[in-house]
Design a protein around this nucleic acid. Structure first.
Lengths: 255, 255
DNA sequence: GAGTGGTCTAGACCACTGT
DNA sequence: CAGTGGTCTAGACCACTCC
């Protein structure tokens, strides 16, 4: 392996300096991206990777440390390092990106009810958000999330058609209870959501959504707009959700 | 220094095992808590701490790494390691816990307008949240935040009277433009907010707050309830905020 | 140039998981 | 038991900041 131990700062704009462990991180990332190791699988041991990349074990360790901090990998002492997955088991593990919590700390069942799934062409906003051409095919999913049987979230999900060709209502229904939506995208389409940004606002319930969420029309709801990204920070999901916050709240940690 | 390199698992409930670097971390934490180094100040170099604690520099490094990840310390290459502070300069640095962003990415001026500040006795909820006795003295601050001159946030802040005795409206007004609220608490009262939890809901604007935020009564607003903690995860601030999300949104990152 | 944090190495040993 | 990640050390050198 060729090591670029440093980069000179001769040029005007500064590429600055890239430590070895970041180069290793990039190499591991490429392996993940190329599907060399699939979600949930074990990656080679640190010593093995160190041999392969011809660096010390400590350097591999630091690369993996960063990736574990970003939830790309999961370390398990005594066993090895695994590729992070949205299909992990554990009720709260499975919905990694869902920050809704019951007012009463009670444990709840969470059920996803697919309502519709149709094909469309990307409008200006969807095209811009997803980084695809205006008019490019997209898939729109509409679904309801029920906490302990009560409807709490209604959402519309916009996906680039190019990546999720075969997705339809039937598939969504068939996947019921087998895992989260992202778990489906991961296992059926090989697209992994690594990071997401959310924009939260307060809006009034319109008649249609009010009925679905079983609240009065005009009830204040949380509007959560999410853009999820896969490798290379490529946006691959745009989602507009409405959260009913009568019995639940959006939980966030600051530091 | 006495090192407990491991703990046996003889007892039934498991204290498990505490690595050296965590013990070092605790020691540094104690120094911070005791005020040995104040916010914004430089702490001793890694080598010096290593000598003092009689461990290797790498072990100190790992302790500091964790504390930097938790925003307790800030490293600056070539200069040293500093105690993190809410008084840091930088417009977005100063309001570290504020996640509100303008719809248009434009940079804005942020102004805090103190409205009221009065003393009261803790009710059941405040007492429970702040971990103080029912009826214990508390201080309540009511203020408005203006972005580029427009009111966007109205909030009520509940503080334990024991810690913030001399806080009054005059002091709040005198501190205008000198830094954030937390910066004031830090410099005037020596209380540092390290971590906070937020619970977000959607509510309708009541007449009083609607007028202050210059929106119609009943307009959906973001209700953000925040509990901030200082050392030892001790809660020392309870805050109820209302965000107008017509021109701004609450921004969050998931991973 | 001296001092700081940042990187890299090599080797020893510990803790946890499976067989 | 062997294999994995986790900790700890000691030393070398690099990059950045300030005098």
């Amino acid at each position: 392996m060729v090591k670029f131990r440093s980069m000179s700062q001769d040029s005007v704009s500064a590429p600055t300096f890239s430590p070895l462990y970041r180069q290793i991180k990039t190499l591991i990332l490429q392996g993940l991206e190329a599907g060399e190791w699939r979600p949930g699988e074990l990656i080679p041991s640190e010593t093995e990777l160190a041999l392969r990349f011809n660096v010390s074990q400590g350097t591999v360790r630091k690369a993996i440390d960063e990736m574990a901090a970003e939830s790309l990998l999961v370390r398990r002492q005594g066993k090895g390092t695994y590729v992070a997955s949205h299909t992990d088991a554990g009720p709260r593990e499975a919905f990694r990106f869902l920050r809704l919590v019951a007012e009463t700390g009670a444990t709840e069942t969470l059920q996803s009810v697919p309502l519709e799934c149709w094909r469309a062409k990307a409008g200006h906003e969807a095209a811009r958000t997803l980084g695809i051409a205006f008019g490019a095919p997209i898939i729109i999913v509409r679904r309801l999330l029920k906490f302990s049987g009560k409807p709490v979230v209604i959402e519309e999900i916009y996906l680039p058609g190019e990546l999720f060709g075969g997705l339809d209502l039937e598939m969504l229904q068939a996947y019921q209870g087998q895992g989260s939506f992202y778990s489906l995208l991961e296992t059926r389409f090989g697209v992994r959501m690594l990071r997401a940004e959310e924009r939260i606002r307060a809006v009034a319930a319109d008649p249609v959504n009010a009925k679905l969420l079983e609240v009065a029309q005009g009830t204040p709801l949380l509007s959560v707009e999410r853009v999820s990204h896969t490798y290379g920070d490529r946006p691959v999901e745009w989602r507009q959700s409405l959260y009913s916050t009568a019995t639940h709240y959006y939980s966030n940690e600051l530091s």
